[in-house]
């Protein structure tokens, strides 16, 4: 795992999955898009299409459905652009829209579209930490930790991923998951908290202490 210094963001940038994307101002891009600018549309597509796809595939098993829904989402954006207002975060807006559409579609289709109890739904990986450690026993610790993280309720896992991985705010997560902001905050908190409890019988130390030690620089 790459450990970056605290001060290495000299330019204004946007970290998505560790990739820096210069965002002079996303609201400018959104405004231009609303005014019919094609380059801005392409920008939005390039920066978010794969994120949307990855997120959608966590929710439903049918990848074609995810692709179709992303297409529908972009078509609708274009069609309704005169009526759309400014957004705080393009990513948050797109995620909200994709999730709603997928769930609506899942209800309409009577087949088992949703990953549902399917264990793959929002499974978490801590591979980044395992890579940072050098000794063998550490990777067992991580495997254990990962296992317990993945035993958390799906909602908590989704919230945690949206929070840590997608870098979305509690307000955005609340909108995406269609819950109150307070609940979004509670979900992530409970995920961290129950993780501590679950690992208590296994370890004398708190799980997060384990994380701390192993992830040391």
């Amino acid at each position: 795992m790459k450990v970056s210094s605290l001060y290495d963001y000299s330019e204004s940038s946007h970290l998505v999955n560790g990739e820096k994307i210069p965002i002079k101002d996303e609201s400018v891009i959104w405004k231009k898009f609303l005014h019919g600018d094609e380059e801005s549309l392409i920008y939005i597509y390039h920066h978010y299409a794969n994120h949307l796809y990855n997120y959608g595939c966590q929710l439903v098993r049918q990848k074609e459905l995810v692709t179709d829904t992303i297409q529908e989402l972009f078509f609708d954006l274009i069609d309704r652009r005169d009526r759309l207002s400014e957004v705080k975060s393009i990513k948050g807006y797109l995620f909200v829209s994709l999730r709603r559409r997928l769930l609506r579609q899942a209800k309409r289709e009577e087949r088992m579209w949703l990953q549902g109890e399917h264990e793959e739904m929002f499974e978490i990986s801590l591979a980044g930490l395992a890579m940072a450690s050098t000794s063998e026993d550490r990777s067992e610790d991580y495997a254990l930790l990962e296992k317990h993280l993945n035993e958390l309720p799906v909602q908590q896992k989704e919230a945690l991923l949206l929070y840590f991985y997608e870098g979305l705010s509690y307000a955005e997560i609340a909108e995406i998951m269609d819950i109150k902001v307070k609940s979004a905050r509670a979900l992530t908190y409970r995920a961290l908290e129950s993780l501590q409890k679950r690992l208590a019988p296994f370890k004398d130390t708190l799980v997060l202490l384990l994380l701390l030690r192993s992830a040391s620089l």
Partner: peptide
């Protein structure tokens, strides 16, 4: 400084187990 660095580690290490790409 140390705590911040470690918290950053945990945040940046968390990702989807199944990554899908179009």
């Amino acid at each position: 400084g140390r705590i911040v660095a470690k918290a950053k580690n945990v945040i940046q290490a968390t990702s989807y187990k199944h990554q899908y790409q179009m």
